[in-house]
Write a protein that binds this DNA or RNA. Structure first.
Length: 470
DNA sequence: TGGGGTTAT
DNA sequence: ATAACCC
C-alpha cells in the first residue's frame, strides 16, 4: 500500500553520487547504503508539468481550423481560457465575454461547459506520465507532479564518473545559474531536466499537447519555477537560486498553499511580501494560525516543502454542476437534477466503481458576498440502488432523483420563495465492487444469485474464475 | 467569475 | 457539513 519506493539494497551506491553534506552536522551518515530518496527528502527530484492553455489546446486538436486564430473557451459569460494568439491581443483568463469581444470582436469562441473532452485528455496525460514513473500526482486537469528521484538515480548509476562533466542541461536554468558538475544535486537536477524534456516530448508525440515543466528539489519550487518561461518551455532550479525565485514573487498569495483566506489574515498582520513573511516572528505567526499551519506557511516562504508526491490514482468523486441566473421552482430544480444525474450515471458506469454517497450542493442568490456561498447535504445511497448501478438507468434514475430532492428539501423550504444560481450533484465514496473482496466466494454468490444478473455478466465472471484462459 | 477537483476539521 | 486549498 505504501506509495514510497522499495527500500532497496544497492551496495553499488558510489560516493560521488551521495549528496554533499553541506553544513555537515545536519546529515548523519547512513548505516547502510540506502536509496537516496528514502533517506533524505531534500534530495528528491520533482518535476511539475503544466500544459499550455489546456482547454484551448484540446479544442484546437478537435478542430485544427482554429489553430492559428485567436480562440477563447467560454463558460457562461466568461472566457475561462484562451490560446496564445488571443493572449497576444490582451485577452486574459476569466475575462468576461464582453471585455474580450471589446478587445477583439472577431474572437472565435467555443463553449467549454462540458468538460468531457478535457477530462478524458487530462487522464490520457496522467496515464502516459505514469508509464514513466509511478509517482504522479494530478493538480486540476492540466498539471501533474512527478517524483522522478528513482529514475534519476538509475541513470546516474549507468554513467561513468568521467562522463558526468559532459552532461547537458535541457531547457533553461533559472537565473542562468552556472552548473557545478562536482555538485551532486546539480547533476541530479540536470538529469531531471533531461527526463522532463523526454516527458514533454512524449506528451507532444503521443497526444499532440505542449506544456511547460519545472524541475526542482520539491513540489513548491518545481511548480513555481515551471512558469518562468511560458509557452512550451522548461526551467530547472538549482538550490542556490531558490531565494531569488521566492523573493521575486510579487505577493504572498502567489505561493501555492497560501490561498485567499490565509492571505487576508497575513495582510491584517501587515505582511505583504515574501520577505515580510520570512522575517516575521514565528511565535506571532503561531498565535494567529496555530503551530501546524504557521510552521507550514513559514517554511513555504523559505521555499521548503516536504509534502510528498502522492499518486492520485482514479478520481475520488464525480460531480456535475450547472450555474444559471435563476432557478426558483421545485419543478425546475427537479429537471436540472435529472439532467445532472443522467450525465453522472453515464460517467459512473464507464468508471465501473460504485458510489456509496450522493451529495447535493446549491448556491443561493445574494447580493452581498456574491461568490462562494454554497451549502450541501449528503446521504448514503441505499444498497439496493448501489447494486443496480451497472444496469438499466431507468430503474436507478428515478429513485436517485427522489433521494436528491429530499436533500434539496433539507436545505430549502419549498413553501417559501427561493432563488438558486447553482446546482451540483456529486457521487463519492467510490468502491470497487458492490460487496466483498474479489476472489472470495461471496463475490460469486452475491452476483450470481442476483435475480436480474444477465447471462453476459455470468459468462464474464466464469472467465475470471478460470483465470481468463482465452 | 466556470466547472470542476482535493484534504482537513 | 463545512471550510480551506488547487486548477
Amino acid at each position: 500500500m505504501e506509495p514510497s519506493p522499495p527500500p532497496a539494497q544497492d551496495d553499488e551506491d558510489e560516493d560521488w553520487l551521495r549528496p554533499q553534506p553541506g553544513g555537515g552536522a545536519a546529515a548523519p551518515a547512513p548505516r547502510h547504503s540506502r536509496s537516496l530518496s528514502a533517506r533524505n527528502t531534500a534530495c528528491r527530484v520533482i518535476v511539475h508539468i503544466d500544459l499550455d492553455c489546456f482547454y484551448a489546446q484540446v479544442e484546437m486538436i478537435r478542430n485544427p481550423e482554429l489553430r492559428d486564430k485567436p480562440l477563447g473557451v467560454q463558460q457562461k459569460n466568461y472566457v475561462v481560457t484562451c490560446n496564445y494568439e488571443a493572449r497576444r491581443l490582451g485577452i486574459k483568463k476569466l475575462m468576461s465575454v464582453r471585455d474580450a469581444k471589446e478587445k477583439f470582436p472577431q474572437l472565435t469562441l467555443v463553449n467549454g461547459e462540458d468538460l468531457t473532452q478535457y477530462r478524458e485528455m487530462s487522464y490520457k496525460v496522467t496515464d502516459l506520465l505514469e508509464e514513466f514513473c509511478p509517482l504522479v500526482e494530478r493538480l486540476g486537469f492540466d498539471e501533474n507532479f512527478l517524483d522522478i528521484t528513482e529514475i534519476v538515480e538509475k541513470r546516474l548509476k549507468r554513467l561513468q564518473q568521467s562522463e558526468c562533466c559532459r552532461i547537458c542541461v535541457s531547457g533553461h536554468v533559472y537565473n542562468n545559474q552556472a552548473i557545478d558538475f562536482h555538485d551532486t544535486m546539480h547533476i541530479r537536477l540536470v538529469v531531471g531536466s533531461q527526463i522532463a524534456e523526454e516527458l514533454r516530448e512524449a506528451v507532444h508525440a503521443r497526444l499532440g499537447l505542449t506544456g511547460c515543466a519545472g524541475v526542482a528539489s520539491n513540489k513548491l519550487l518545481a511548480k513555481l519555477v515551471s512558469g518562468t518561461f511560458k509557452p512550451n518551455q522548461q526551467t530547472v532550479l538549482l538550490p542556490e537560486s531558490c531565494q531569488d525565485l521566492i523573493c521575486n514573487l510579487e505577493h504572498i498569495n502567489k505561493v501555492p498553499g497560501i490561498g485567499y483566506k490565509t492571505t487576508k489574515r497575513l495582510e491584517m498582520l501587515g505582511l505583504k511580501s515574501m520577505c515580510d513573511l520570512q522575517a516575521f516572528p514565528s511565535a506571532m505567526l503561531e498565535k494567529e494560525f496555530g503551530v501546524s499551519t504557521a510552521q507550514r506557511i513559514q517554511k513555504l516562504s523559505n521555499g521548503e516543502d516536504d509534502s510528498p508526491v502522492t499518486p492520485s490514482g482514479p478520481p475520488q468523486s464525480f460531480s456535475e454542476e450547472d450555474s444559471f441566473k435563476k432557478c426558483s421552482s421545485e419543478v425546475q430544480v427537479k429537471e436540472k437534477i435529472k439532467e445532472l444525474l443522467d450525465i453522472l450515471l453515464d460517467r459512473i458506469h464507464k468508471d465501473g466503481r460504485k458510489p456509496h454517497t450522493v451529495r447535493l450542493a446549491i448556491r443561493q442568490f445574494s447580493s452581498t458576498n456574491k461568490w462562494f456561498n454554497r451549502e450541501s447535504r449528503q446521504c448514503p445511497i441505499p444498497p439496493y440502488l448501489i447494486q443496480k448501478f451497472g444496469k438499466e438507468r431507468s430503474s436507478v434514475i428515478s429513485p436517485l432523483v427522489d433521494i436528491v430532492m429530499k436533500l434539496f428539501r433539507k436545505m430549502i423550504n419549498v413553501a417559501l420563495p427561493f432563488h438558486l444560481t447553482l446546482l451540483s450533484v456529486c457521487f463519492s465514496n467510490l468502491k470497487d465492487l458492490p460487496s466483498s473482496k474479489k476472489g472470495s466466494i461471496g463475490f460469486y454468490l452475491t452476483e450470481v444469485s442476483s435475480p436480474s444478473a444477465s447471462g453476459k455478466n455470468v459468462q464474464e465472471m466464469e472467465a475470471v474464475s478460470q483465470g481468463q484462459a482465452s
